[in-house]
Design a protein around this nucleic acid. Structure first.
Length: 414
RNA sequence: GUGGGUGUAGCUCAGAUUGGUUAGAGCGCCAGGUUGUGGCCCUGGAGGCCGUGGGUUCAAGUCCCAUUACCCACCCCA
């Protein structure tokens, strides 16, 4: 019988890597706390309908990437492919937006999409999701971008850039969209097959197609900024000024487009040059229409999601994170009859809050010392026939090589 | 869903072009040199259905077919 393996696209986070994960998660929580966000933990499963309505029925995520199944009662349920929809649902369901001030929420956890795995892309992956509700103003946009920047830069990641754009609003986007479609329809033959398909589905995406011939065509396409309505222009201007005032480095990219239907106005992305093709480590934007779309009140919102595995990859690549410290003590026995005293000694140390690695297998002194060293312990405690006779355990400091005796009957000396 | 690459020791990989006794190295592990004092060095040892199934052949890790897993890229997305 073949051994069982993890399912495709689902990865074990091994101890060595888990240390890095904890570091990133702790940094996320710390930064988010400084910006006064509260944690909301929505369930991992929601009604399939929630995602169909929020993401757009024709998006790839909904069409072919969701883990949707019928439960035993016959309801269609889905493992969340992203966090925003669940957060919005919870916000509305519990009236968290009532109270006269902005509601600032974050969520950290696993998401699920049935995709073909590759570098920086798994079927179970993890995101930090940060959202501000009930504030339509541009300063929230700037604040959340500053938050993202703080998070990333405090992780010590080099080679990161923040790119922003405005996607317009329901007032002005349709006109631009039509103009773009009209322009590209005349050049349909010069577009790659993917873009020919996109023209009908999501024409804005053609703007950031990587195929050379498409980029050629797009060069002369109408530019979005010319179509922004006055409100969108003003909004975006304040966002930019606010970021500049705070000294945050960013660049503008008219081609930056979001994949999900619900985005409006400000869109932004954090990219790394050190990843493969999956260069976006975080992305987000404003989505003023979503709450209403989901049957709730008309609440404006802005937020982003950061992909943790991609951040971890960057962290691991630069090898900056120190691994977990070894135990304070390594207790080893040199003869089987030392087992009892060794147990008691280890327990005495542990009950004082010290970390103790123990080796219950009797062996030669040399090999025990070698193991203690390998375990990264600060000190080794050895008990053998001599120690049992003298009543003093040998405590050796592995860095200074200093040695001391510890009365076996009085471990409380620690 | 589409395309390419790779599966050999716990880990990283040679060996495949040109089929030929017992399939190798480094690291790690165990033991000894040093009979109770680690890291360096030396010596020895354990550890492999060569991803799986079929085929060609006197003979397959090596050639052919299928299959599966992983990786990378496209698509899409964080």
């Amino acid at each position: 019988m073949p051994a069982l393996t993890a399912i495709r696209g689902f990865k074990d986070i091994l101890p060595k890597e888990a240390d890095l994960w904890r570091l990133v998660e702790e940094k996320a929580r710390e930064v988010v706390r400084r910006f006064d966000f509260s944690e909301l933990r929505p369930p991992v499963m929601e009604r399939a309908e929630l995602f169909q309505r929020s993401l757009g029925a024709t998006t790839d995520i909904v069409e072919k990437e969701m883990y949707t199944m019928e439960d035993r009662g016959g309801d269609l349920i889905t493992l969340r492919p992203e966090a925003t929809a669940g957060l919005v649902r919870a916000l509305i369901e519990h009236n968290l937006h009532e109270g006269g001030r902005a509601t600032k929420l974050f969520c950290l956890g696993p998401m699920f999409r049935y995709e073909r795995p590759q570098k920086g892309r798994l079927r179970q992956f993890h995101q930090l999701d940060v959202e501000i509700f009930s504030d339509p103003g541009p300063h929230s946009d700037a604040e959340i971008i500053v938050l993202l920047h703080s998070f990333l830069s405090e992780l010590g990641l080099p080679n990161l850039s923040i790119v922003i754009n405005s996607l317009g609003c329901p007032e002005c986007r349709p006109a631009y969209r039509k103009s773009l479609v009209d322009f590209l329809t005349g050049r349909l033959g010069s577009l790659c097959p993917d873009c020919q398909r996109r023209l009908g589905q999501n024409p804005l995406r053609i703007l950031d197609c990587k195929v050379g011939s498409c980029q050629e065509q797009v060069k002369d396409a109408p530019a979005f900024p010319a179509f922004w309505c006055q409100d969108c222009q003003d909004h975006f201007k304040v966002v930019r000024e606010s970021l500049e005032a705070q000294g945050l480095p960013f660049s503008l990219d008219e081609r930056l487009v979001r994949g999900l239907d619900y985005y409006t106005r400000t869109a932004f992305e954090a990219r790394s040059g050190d990843l493969g093709s999956q260069s976006a480590v975080a992305g987000g934007g404003r989505y003023d229409g979503l709450c209403k779309e989901l049957g709730g009140p008309d609440i404006p919102a802005i937020g982003f999601a950061a992909g943790l595995e991609r951040l971890i990859m960057l962290m691991a690549a630069q090898d900056s994170a120190a691994g977990r410290a070894g135990p304070d003590y390594y207790v080893a026995i040199l003869a089987p009859e030392a087992l009892g005293p060794a147990f008691r000694l280890a327990q005495a140390l542990r009950s004082r809050g010290l970390s103790v690695a123990a080796d219950w297998e009797a062996g030669g002194l040399k090999s025990r010392l070698k193991r203690a060293d390998k375990a990264g312990a600060a000190k080794a405690i050895m008990i053998g026939p001599d120690e049992l006779a003298s009543g003093l355990a040998t405590v050796r400091d592995l860095t200074t090589k200093g040695q001391a005796g510890l009365p076996l009957d009085k471990p409380e000396l620690f």
